[in-house]
């Protein structure tokens, strides 16, 4: 895995000195702990990790790690992440953000990273609300929900993030929750180890604007581990069946892991580069391509 060999890293080695701006009680505090733990388990040194986010409360997360971070613009974590991965496929590339960042303003990108099978792990901290701008509807808000932009209740069905990525053919799809930090860390670790695009939805409650049912107590009441249900993560159709219950049940664990991961985009790029490198004119002779014979 590691270009520099396996090193012994502790979760604290991935924790930066920056103090989170999140509200006390926010689910994201546990998510960042889960990420520290997963990274320590993987054992890549922080400087070999690029961690990209968009804009939102949760998008502050790269700054709280010691990795190379990029807190970019709203909705564009994934385009930037794939540029990083293509420029240097040896890096461990993580992307993270909220449900609005990922499924609303940046919703158009996910499908394409999936079909390219970019070897990037994408973590969405799904809180069903826009927190940073003070509690407006998000793409995963339940229909009928009242917020400051839906005084009389939302008229829209929510996006189902799990079904969304499964339908596009993501090779690894999982869900985790702050109610189980250990399980979350394990799932993130597995997602990173999966060779290809991996998606982890984390139900991370908004303590300031979230509804009671979405807080940890509420989540505990509806959580159910996929392993306890005897779910076989190789079964994509069964995963899609279970994913339908998003919003009612909170299934924790791996929905789907492609048992035969196809080559990643990065693999194919390397293959093509190797194949064509012998045809390269020296750069200083590139204009020879235009010689009129």
């Amino acid at each position: 895995m590691s270009a520099t060999g396996t090193l012994d890293f502790q979760p604290k080695d991935y924790k930066s000195d920056l103090k989170p701006i999140w509200c006390p009680g926010c689910g994201d505090f546990s998510v960042v702990q889960g990420i520290y733990r997963a990274l320590a388990a993987i054992g890549r040194p922080p400087h070999e990790i690029a961690f990209v986010s968009g804009i939102g409360c949760s998008s502050r997360i790269p700054g709280y790690t010691t990795a190379y971070g990029f807190n970019s613009v709203h909705g564009r974590a994934l385009p930037i992440a794939q540029g990083i991965k293509l420029a240097n496929p040896d890096l461990l590339v993580l992307a993270a953000g909220g449900d609005g960042d990922g499924f609303s303003i940046g919703g158009g990108h996910i499908a394409h990273l999936i079909r390219r099978n970019m070897d990037i792990t994408y973590i969405v901290m799904d809180n069903q609300i826009y927190g940073l701008t003070k509690g407006q509807l998000s793409p995963t808000s339940q229909k009928g929900r009242t917020t400051c932009t839906s005084r009389y209740g939302s008229l829209e069905e929510p996006v189902n993030p799990l079904l969304y990525v499964l339908a596009y053919g993501a090779g690894f799809v999982a869900q985790a929750s702050p109610t189980d930090l250990v399980g979350m860390a394990a799932v993130i670790e597995e997602a990173i180890r999966y060779p290809g695009f991996a998606f982890v939805n984390i139900q991370s409650p908004c303590v300031t604007y979230g509804e009671e049912a979405q807080q940890i107590k509420g989540l505990k009441a509806i959580q159910e581990s996929l392993a306890s249900l005897g779910h076989n993560p190789a079964d994509r159709l069964a995963a899609m069946d279970l994913a339908q219950q998003y919003g009612e049940k909170m299934h924790l664990g791996v929905f789907y892991r492609n048992p035969e991961p196809p080559p990643t985009y990065g693999d194919l790029v390397k293959e093509r580069q190797a194949l064509l490198s012998k045809d390269a004119l020296p750069r200083e002779r590139i204009l020879d391509l235009f010689i009129k014979k």
């Binding site: 564009r76 994934l78 385009p79 992440a81 420029a87 394409h112």
Partner: peptide
Amino acid sequence: AEDEIAGIGAAVGASFAGM
């Protein structure tokens, strides 16, 4: 890329990665 924004986004990412 899938759109103009992703095109420049990937280029920004590649530059960040040193290319």
